[in-house]
Structures are given as C-alpha cells and as structure tokens.
Simulated scan of single mutants.
Amino acid sequence: MKAYFGYFVVIFVFVCHASADDETVDCTKPPRFVPPHMCCPVPDVSTDELKEQCAEYNKPPPPPPMGRGGPPKFDRRHHPHHTPPCVIDCIFNNTEVMGANGEPDVDKFSALLDTAVKDNEEMAAVMEESFESCVGMLSELKAKMAEKASKHPEFADRMGNCSPVSGMLMMCVNIETFKNCPASAWNDSTECNATRNFFKQCKFPKDGN
C-alpha cells in the first residue's frame, strides 16, 4: 500500500508564497500537480496487524456541509492515497509512538519502521530522520494548525474524537521524506523535480502570516 500525502492540505497549511533562495523557483506559482507517490513511493507505516487493530477508524470522515464555496475540496474519495488521520492516531497510540503524555517518541517510531519498512533500510533511515526533524518542529506545526482550525472550524468537526497531532506529524514526515527521497526511489522527471524544488525552497513564515 502506497503512503499518503495530503498534498493539497500541505499547500494550504504548511507552504506560504514566500521568497525562495533559488531565484529559478517562483513561490507564488505552485508547479503542476503530480501525485507525490508517483515521485517518491514512501512506504506506509501500518502493518497488517495494525490495520486490523485500527480497522474501525479506516473510513473517510463525512464531508462538510455544502456552502457558498460549493462541494468539499479535499474529499478522500478523490485522493485514495490519503490515510484517514484517525488511523494514524490509532497506529501511533497502539505502538506508543505517541506517548500517554501526548509527546512523540523517536525510539518508538524507529521500532515501528523496523517492522513496517524492514525491507527498505535506506528509506527507513530517511523517514526516521524526517520524524526527528518534525518532532523538533511540532510546536510550530501545532500553532499553525490551531490558527487554520480557528479560521476553518469544520476541520475540527471532521476529526471527531481523534487527535489531529499524529496525522499532522505523519504528514510532516512524508513531506520531509519526499524532499529527501533516496535517489534509488526518486522519479527523476521534470514534474517531480519541480515539485520537490518548490517544497524545498518555499517556506511558511514564522509569524503565521
């Protein structure tokens, strides 16, 4: 099963139209969409056992009500590689990647990778480094998500009783892994390279504007 990337959500939440260090990258113009798993097939972290344990959460959330903006833009039915955030929350809780204190555990995530990504040591190493980087950014990511949730309360409603932190953290891991994808797994195409350059160069601002 291929990993998910909340590509559109990533653009909306984490990427800002800021200036880039590389003048060849225009951060005001995202590149043409290409499914990230077609560029870098990051493995899923759920094993068959974990999928069974978290099966009750493996269903798409109800779509938000129709508003003036028309139908929902992020319907999972149109993005089959997205794993529901409640499944990620369940997996991280069951494996203690997310501790009882609500803090992520790097060693537990490493142990999860040893089981779920055991056939790809190179990719697992990049994912572990990505997790460590994302843990370091967690406070900033939480603040960014809280800001977006305050402006779009329907996001919180769609989460139900699940914590969004695990899903947000896993999304970050996938973004960082995508940016640092091993050459052996990377699709060296013009579209994929343009997308990766955009993610590497265009940063969201520290002040949240």
Rank of each mutant, 00 (worst) to 15 (best):
N58P: 07
S46Y: 12
K108W: 01
N180I: 04
P182R: 02
A55D: 11
C192E: 05
H152D: 13
E191M: 07
E52A: 15
C192T: 10
C86N: 00
Y57L: 06
D89L: 00
N93F: 14
G102A: 01
N187K: 13
P63L: 09
Q53W: 05
M137W: 00
I88K: 00
D207W: 07
D89V: 03
V25A: 06
K206V: 03
A125E: 14
E52C: 05
G136K: 10
P72K: 01
P153I: 04
S110F: 04
A116H: 06
K151N: 07
N93A: 15
P41E: 06
L113S: 00
S150L: 11
C202I: 02
D48A: 13
F12H: 05
P85S: 11
H78S: 12
A194K: 10
K144D: 05
K51R: 10
T195F: 08
V97K: 13
C90I: 02
S166N: 03
M171H: 09
K51S: 05
D188G: 02
E140P: 08
D188M: 10
S130A: 15
N58T: 12
C172R: 04
H79L: 10
V45R: 02
E176G: 00
E129C: 04
V15T: 14
V15M: 08
C39Q: 06
G208V: 03
P182D: 06
K151G: 04
T24H: 01
H81V: 11
A183T: 15
S110G: 09
K118R: 13
S150M: 14
N58I: 12
T190H: 06
K203H: 10
E122Q: 07
E176F: 05
T177N: 08
N197M: 10
E154F: 14
E132L: 08
V13L: 13
Y7H: 09
P35W: 00
M171Y: 04
M171E: 12
P30T: 05
H17T: 13
A124Y: 04
E132C: 06
N209Y: 08
F131A: 07
S133L: 11
P65S: 03
D75M: 12
E56Q: 10
A156V: 15
P80E: 04
D44S: 13
R77W: 09
D75H: 09
P80H: 01
M159K: 06
G99I: 07
E154H: 15
P41L: 00
L138R: 02
Y7S: 02
V9M: 07
F199K: 01
D157L: 11
H81P: 08
F5A: 05
A3F: 08
H81N: 13
T83Y: 02
I88N: 04
D48W: 07
K73A: 14
R68Y: 14
F74D: 02
D44G: 11
A111R: 11
N101K: 08
E122T: 15
Y57I: 05
A183F: 04
F5P: 03
K142S: 01
C86G: 01
